[in-house]
Write a protein that binds this DNA or RNA. Structure first.
Lengths: 261, 261
DNA sequence: CGAAAACTTGAGGCCACTCAAATGGAGTGG
DNA sequence: CCACTCCATTTGAGTGGCCTCAAGTTTTCG
């Protein structure tokens, strides 16, 4: 088996593997064997698809989502301006989405990890609105949107699920706008760490300790501050025994007090 | 006829009516007659519905969207936590959407005017995520979401249109995140004015002169700055002959230079 | 292993905030 | 219609948080 969990774990650096605790059993990764990409047997299904699909519905999905794509660290899955054709479910790895202003200014609009979907921004204008860049070697399921629309006309729960996913993105973005509009640098970094923690936990990893796949600069660009400020906040939290940060490895020591910052 | 244009115009304060130039003919408003709310005859249709609906499709829409609701200035259309049942198309007037943090901090996530849709944030969790508050006496079309989903399974172009609207909201929010994350106070206010201008123009009003329905404080809360700073930027633009602002009345004198700020 | 990239920390400056006061405008009641 | 009140807006003065610039250290990766 070659599922998302296996891959995700296989990309954790050696020195940190012991700290990351997958709840689901981890099976050995066999990269020589072609990926069997079927929603019906995917361990990410509970995260990226509705729960109540029948066997019949699942076979429809399997017929549509039959290809995956590997994206190497630093490569783009799509760029702003690219023709929109598919959305992508992250099977393994992680991405950042970046919007660019005409004057060259960049802003990171989100970090997406295994189980997240990418690409809904392209439906509106028929072309993507941001760059999606892999933060590590990653694998995505390719979901042709036209075919997904057909399924959604046939399967009510799929239809509703897609609406929920898009609505969820709207809600997450509005929360992020509040963060950017009203919070201090200290509060933003605290929120960021707790948010990542919660998402890792949902996916069966440790909520307390994890590895950041993004640089301080990328975090800063996401939170609307400079990389030096991010670094200072990490140091501050460390001094206050809220967090232990060692480079990319982060341990949240006191989540309650961190939330109250 | 009792359409959105008529209403919108009827709410423009007397002293400003002459400045606002509707492109479509304005018909007299007759508030004693019940509103005939039919998509098939609504002048906002080109803004809030797909262009290529057949007569048959339109009659399906008319069967679903049969009620409107008047919301007085300052009243809420819905609140965060309210059970989600419908989305709303603004027929006349304008709204702000506000998210609130546990600690009482508020952030304005958007200003919506006639032709815009409201409420997609509720699909995700089955309850609304923000408050929608009328900035002036307004009228919305109520669109029960469950029934809209049924239409979307039957009418391909409606299905696609809803996806486009939600995607559009995702894109607008990501642009706003960039604004909040990377721009100076001066640039934010300039973007805000140009954005409003463009939207008024799309709806057949003057791009150069319009009335703000929101206070400086609400603008500041939307742009992530204090009301005093908003006021200072207005004054600054006035000194530089980019904008003429007199209270709520704004005239954009030099849009090109304003865009380059 | 070596070069490049990422990270940390310090010093000083600037933009937006806070606090304060005066002015203007809208709505209300006599 | 006017006086009054309340809220919104403008403007000024001073402060502080985050940015800029810089140097040194650590980590990553070919």
């Amino acid at each position: 088996m070659f599922d998302a969990n296996t891959l995700a774990s296989s990309h954790v650096p050696e020195h940190a593997t012991a700290e990351i605790i997958p709840i689901r059993p981890v099976e050995p990764c066999n990269p020589t064997r072609p990926a069997t990409t079927r929603c019906s047997s995917c361990s990410m299904r509970s995260i990226c698809m509705p729960a109540d699909l029948s066997a019949d519905d699942l076979s429809k999905l399997d017929a549509v989502i039959c290809t995956t794509r590997a994206v190497k660290r630093g490569d783009t899955l799509y760029r702003a301006g690219d023709h929109f054709k598919s959305i992508y479910a992250i099977r393994a790895g992680s991405f950042k989405t970046v919007v660019m202003h005409r004057d060259g200014r960049e802003h990171v609009t989100g970090f997406e990890i295994a189980g997240d979907a990418l690409g809904f921004d392209g439906v509106c204008a028929g072309q993507h609105n941001c760059d999606a860049i892999a933060l590590e070697d990653s694998v995505v399921c390719i979901i042709p949107f036209a075919q997904l629309e057909i399924i959604c006309r046939e399967v009510k729960s799929m239809q509703h699920h897609i609406y929920q996913m898009m609505s969820g993105e709207i809600v997450r973005e509005s929360v992020q706008m509040m963060l950017l509009g009203t919070m201090s640098a200290e509060q933003r970094v605290a929120s960021f760490l707790l948010n990542l923690s919660r998402r890792f936990k949902t996916r069966g990893f440790s909520a307390a300790e994890f590895n950041l796949r993004m640089t301080r600069e990328e975090i800063g660009c996401y939170l609307g501050m400079k990389l030096e400020t991010v670094s200072r906040m990490f140091s501050k939290f460390q001094r206050e025994h809220l967090v232990r940060a060692n480079g990319k490895t982060v341990r949240i020591v006191d989540p309650e007090r961190l939330a109250k910052v």
